[in-house]
Each structure stands twice: as structure tokens, then as C-alpha cells.
Write a protein that binds this DNA or RNA. Sequence first.
DNA 1: CACTATAATGACGAAACGTCACATGACGGA
DNA 2: TCCGTCATGTGACGTTTCGTCATTATAGTG
Lengths: 249, 249
Amino acid sequence: MSPRMLSPQEFEKREAELISISRELFERECPSTFTIDKLVDASPYSKGTVYKHFEGKEDVMMAVCNACFRDLRELFEKALTFKGRSREKLLSVLVSYIIWAKLRPYQLFIVLSAHSPNVTANTSEKYQQQHHECEEQMMTLMCGEIAKAVEQGDLVLSENMTLEQVTFALWSATWGSMALIISKGTSSQLQAMELERETFTNGRLIFDGLNWKPLSSEMNYKETLNRIVKELFSEEVAELEKMGTPFSY
Amino acid sequence: MSPRMLSPQEFEKREAELISISRELFERECPSTFTIDKLVDASPYSKGTVYKHFEGKEDVMMAVCNACFRDLRELFEKALTFKGRSREKLLSVLVSYIIWAKLRPYQLFIVLSAHSPNVTANTSEKYQQQHHECEEQMMTLMCGEIAKAVEQGDLVLSENMTLEQVTFALWSATWGSMALIISKGTSSQLQAMELERETFTNGRLIFDGLNWKPLSSEMNYKETLNRIVKELFSEEVAELEKMGTPFSY
DNA sequence: CACTATAATGACGAAACGTCACATGACGGA
DNA sequence: TCCGTCATGTGACGTTTCGTCATTATAGTG
């Protein structure tokens, strides 16, 4: 009655394999040259099989983006183990995000590209859905931390302001600075905005704008940055140093 | 000696025509379906001629993006004619930006897409250069206004903080909220972030974070919004109403 | 050892790309 | 008026990528 059914497990495993291969391809050469045909060549499967998993290259990009999101969430969880005031913990998340971006520029590239309307317009329901789940998990994680800040009295939410909105504000401000700075590429003309500096500035302004205590005027967050790097990300920072793109703060 | 030399004026004129046709194409159907072949068909020129102007479709996108930037600059200049405190004038710019985005969603789409690494990586030197000029003009315009705010004492820049950084902070925070909200498309899942609300929130937080007087706690900016809409953009807001996507603030 | 339902394959036609050999036509000179 | 020249315009063509689907391979069943 049932000849050779492919179990969902096997299917998932193969999908993970394809995503892993795609990530390698993205790393090796510019993500914009990625094609389904290249993925097929690089994989042990045929075109038809690959198309069983992805409707097109946008789908692959979104799938890779989702994988990155999962990595990021783990990273953020590590960042949140920092012992300190609520605002310091969120700063730690920001630090981890920037370090990740510098360590894996191509993955940032993918994550940003995947949010381009051009890509989202051509992504299948499945991966769109999956992406929303990723975002929601991220939201939940952050909202939880912000809720703690409110509990501890460091942050007082004005009426009409939800936890989600606070998260979104931080997220989008960070996102914007990264997207704009990355898109300038290497040909940064006159206005030399710096990834670390602008991202931290945006974060600081949002924190202060929220009146999240202690304000940047009341505390030396440079100290905090030192501790975050030393206690949590010394390995990554050393690697960045070795790569010639040091984490400067 | 010189048979039929094409004057730079004619060349520019034809380019403007091609860009105009491209904009129409982008409006008519989803920008992601745009192809050079379609542009060739829609234009009175041949493929070879079109390729004289653009190296590929990314080039066309960037050219259209730049045209949008020029429109935006005009719009911002109009917004800055608002009579009021410095922070109110910048808020007016924000309002005009949001109205533009709602009025011409496909153009926002293009502008956002054009900043995707996928596009910038495949744009010719010429249009990359042109884009930097557009950005610089925008920067100059904004920095000028912020300088006035500093002169008037509404804004005190902390040490190590340049006018450009202030502009960048506002710009990127706005950018981020628009990019993230647009990329969700119509399938906004659970977390229903609203374009106007989040963009204004981000702006407000940045303004307050900069300690730009009067703070949102010291003044009712709702009033200002009413005046901005009434005095400068009543026509546009009426049109949005007619389109079924009212400007809600 | 067939038989059968399912999965895997890759050849194929369509679409888009980008180029280049050739056509066109404006101008100056005869 | 006609001709030769050369910048400009043209679109057919070879190439790449896409996405499909008729065909082949295979695991399990009786």
C-alpha cells in the first residue's frame, strides 16, 4: 500500500542540508550571483528535488535568512546572560548583533536582502510563515526582557506604548543604521558613517528617548561595553581583530 | 568630420524619458517583475540604445530611486516652510515622508529595494555616484536645519556628536521602521505594527533622546501635526483618504 | 519476482540577458 | 546633387537561468 514514502524527518534533513550548502555558496561569492542552478550543481540532488523544497531563489534566501535568525536568537540569549541593569543587558544584545554583523558580513547581507520588497514579494507562503515565526520568537524574547525592565522600575512606559513598540523601535533603529551603512558598500563617499558608532548612537538615543534608566548622562556605558566584550565576546572580538575589522567602540 | 554627434542634452533627455517609462512600468505591475526587455518594448528605442544608458536592471532601479530622491528633496523643502520651532519643522519633514510613502507605495518599494545589497552590488559606478550626490544633498539640507536648531538653542549637541550623525540617526530610524513594516507586506501576522505610528514613535524617541526641546513631554505635538497637515498637506491627505489609506496620526 | 505508487532525474522550451555585426542616416565635401 | 564617412541605432543571436514534466529508478507489498 505504501511504497517508499519519504518521511518528514528525511525531508527536513535534506532541506537543512540544502540550506547549509546555500549558506556556503553565499559566503564563497557575492550573494547576488546566487542561482538555483548553482545550488543544484553544488548539491547531490537534482533540480526537480531542489524545487520540491524551494519555489525559487527568493525562497532559498528567505530560508537562509530564517536560519540566520535562529543563530541570532541563540546569540541574543547568550548576550542576555550578562549580569547588570536592564539597559545594560539590552546593550549587550546590541553588541552581540554588531559583532555578528561584522563577523559574518554576508549573512547580514542576506538578512537585509531578504527583507527587500523584491524578495518578500517572491517568497512562498511557507517561508514567509516561517519567517514570521522567527520574528515572533525574537519579539517574545525581547519583550520579556523589556517587561523585566518595567518591573524593575528602570523603564516606565508611557500610556499607549506597548512592549512590542519598544522592541520595534530598538530593532528598527538598529536595522536602519545597518541597512543604510551596508548599502553604501565600500564606496563610502564623503559622509563616513561608521557601523558601530551609528548603531550605538541610535540605540542610545532610543534608550534615552524612552527615559530608560540609567540615562546615558547618568552612567558610563563605556565601562559596560568593556565588561560585555570581556565577559561574553572576547573570542569573537579577537577573531574580528584577526580579520582586520576590529570591533571599535 | 563630425557626422551626427549626439549632444549631451539629447542624451540626457532620452535618459529622462527612459526613467519616466520605467517609473510607469514599476507603478503598473509589481517592481519585481521588471525586466530590461519590458522597458525596451515599452520605449521607442532598441535594446542596444537602452543598454547605452543602463548596464542592467539594477541600474534602472537606482536611476529611478535617484529620481525619487529628487522628488523627496523638493517635498522636504516644502515641509520645511512650516512656521514653527525647529523640532516642529523636522517633524514636518517626517510627515511629508510618510505621506509620500503612503501616496506612492511602489516608489517607496523601489527606494527601499535600491538599497538592498543585492541591487547596490550590481549598480554601475555612474548611478552609484549619482546616488551619493542625492544623499549628500539630502544630508546638506537636513544638516542645515539641525544647525539652525543648535543656533536657536533648541538642541545642544553633546561632544563627539556631529550634525551628520543627528541627521543619520533620524534618517536611519525612519528608514528602519519603513523597511521592516513594508517588508512584512500584506501578511502582517500577529504583531501589527503601523507605519505612521511606529515611524512617529521612532522619530519622537530620537528627538527626545537628543534632548531636542521642547520635549514630547513639554509640548503637545498632536497640535503641530494638525497644523502641518492643514497648512501644507491637506491636498495629499485628502487624496490618501480617497485612496482608502488615510493618513492616521 | 513482478507490481505499484512514489520520489528523483535531467532534458527541454521559455524567458531574460547582454553583445555585436550590420544598418541607418546626418553631415561635409566634391 | 550625390557620395563617402562615421557616430549612432538596431535587433538577431548565443548564453544563462528558469521552472516544468515526461521518464526513469526504487522501496515496499503480495
